[in-house]
């Protein structure tokens, strides 16, 4: 086998190929990757590609362009792994996975509680449509609706300033203090830590909050925070 330039490294994974890109100008990296693929067409034919772009910041146009160029070569891009929150967000927007079967060590080792204690939140000012999957190691705030078919998996709490009709998993790392709040709470399914609740028949007409109390999911009206309570 030919020696690969260090900027583009290719590894086999259980469910496809993982290509790790080094630190260089994006244009250059993309050109190198494409050159590799063109050079070894038979190898890449029909491949499922996961791309580790490191801390590279990619916007929608760049990622769409890459996906198109790859798809023209009959290579399908299914995941983009990155340290950059912008890149991760872009990948999520395009419906690409952001983790591969073997998660990057630094991601899996980082304890969930840290992020939550940092009060890190992902702010999404748009409606999450069907097929969108948001995973975040902290809180998630959505200003917009969460439509049926959309999923939010947060290690912290989830707050939806809109209608919650998709699937939400708060406290995904096991945080039992996590809560879910929405202006209209009618999720397809709702989970906090390890507990699952299916929606009640009635349509949520007023803002509601869900939390874990005595091992069960409890729904109550969502009201101004009582400062004496710690929730």
């Amino acid at each position: 086998m030919k020696e690969l330039p260090p900027l583009v490294q290719i590894k086999g994974l259980r469910d496809g190929l993982l290509v790790s890109l080094g630190d260089a100008d994006w244009e250059k990296l993309q050109a190198m990757l494409i050159a590799q693929i063109d050079e070894r067409q038979a190898f890449f034919q029909g491949a499922r590609l996961a791309l580790d772009v490191g801390s590279q910041i990619l916007h929608v146009t760049e990622m769409v362009n890459l996906r198109d160029v790859l798809s023209e070569r009959n290579v399908s891009l299914w995941a983009v792994v990155s340290d950059s929150p912008t890149t991760v967000k872009t990948a999520q927007l395009l419906g690409l996975a952001t983790r591969v079967s073997k998660p990057r060590p630094e991601e899996s080792l980082r304890p969930a509680a840290d992020a939550v204690e940092d009060e890190t939140a992902l702010w999404l000012r748009r409606t999450l449509r069907s097929g969108t999957r948001i995973e975040f190691p902290g809180h998630v705030v959505v200003v917009g609706d969460v439509n049926p078919g959309a999923e939010i998996i947060a290690e912290g709490s989830v707050l939806v300033w809109g209608r919650l009709r998709g699937v939400v998993h708060a406290g995904a790392g096991g945080n039992r203090e996590a809560t879910v709040c929405a202006l209209e709470l009618s999720p397809t399914q709702l989970r906090i830590a390890g507990e699952i609740a299916l929606p009640s028949e009635k349509k949520g007409e007023r803002p509601e909050k869900v939390y874990l109390g005595n091992g069960r999911l409890v729904v109550e009206p969502w009201q101004p925070v009582n400062l004496k309570s710690n929730r």
């Binding site: 146009t61 769409v64 395009l94 419906g95 449509r129 069907s130 049926p148």
Partner: peptide, 15 residues
């Protein structure tokens, strides 16, 4: 409608 929602999401993401 569910599928339409998915398609709209993709169209929005592709600007």
């Amino acid at each position: 409608v569910r599928d339409a929602d998915r398609v709209i999401g993709i169209l929005e993401a592709e600007e």
